[in-house]
Design a binder for these strands. Sequence first.
DNA 1: GCGACAG
DNA 2: ATCTTGTCGC
Length: 223
Amino acid sequence: MKFDFKKAKRAQEILKKKLSLKPLGKVKLIAGCDLTFLNPYKTPTLGIGAFVVLSYPSLEVIEYAYEILEIKVPYIPSFLAFREIPLLIKTFRKLKNKPDIVIVDGHGIAHPRKLGIAAHFGIVEKVPTIGCAKKPLYGNFKEPCEKKGCYEEIYDPKTKEILGYVLRTKNNVKPIYISPGNLITLTDTLSFMQTLKGKYRIPEPTRLAHNYLQTLRKGYNSQ
DNA sequence: GCGACAG
DNA sequence: ATCTTGTCGC
């Protein structure tokens, strides 16, 4: 089945109208999520998604959840949400502890139509989100200095507005790209990410969700 | 037309 | 994203 670019683009433009970049409230629970395939060889379309809920700011694990779903939509840059969101939502709705904010793999408003997967997910689930990507997708920026904590703004090449930040989370290691998803301001996005005391490049909630998936996948493939 | 292009 | 161990460098 082919991907309908026109419909997808239209859906993004309609959803974008519901985007709300307002100040973030108090956060007690934070969640990270991730998604991969169960077995790329045997069942190349079976995706597995995971969420990890942590206390904030202590970052102790409160809950793990996972779900499995058939994924048929291909990966197309700037349309990632259509591929990954059904599984993310299915998994998110299993959570007993609803987080006050979710960190999503991918961009928020740092996207050609200001509706990256983090913004898309935040609108659909009515939850504050931050997009955290490992690679740039859209926008201009300068390379931040090599020290942990250094950052630079990501600018929209057309409107010149700030869309997010390139943040160095570890000395001499590639930076990450963060931008507001929904129900959070641009500056809250930066300050919140700066409060996540992390030892690694990837923020702890995302890293734990990723590790959890690897464990689940090995379990399924070895029995 | 060409290159770039989250996961 | 995924196939994959050790290895080089800070």
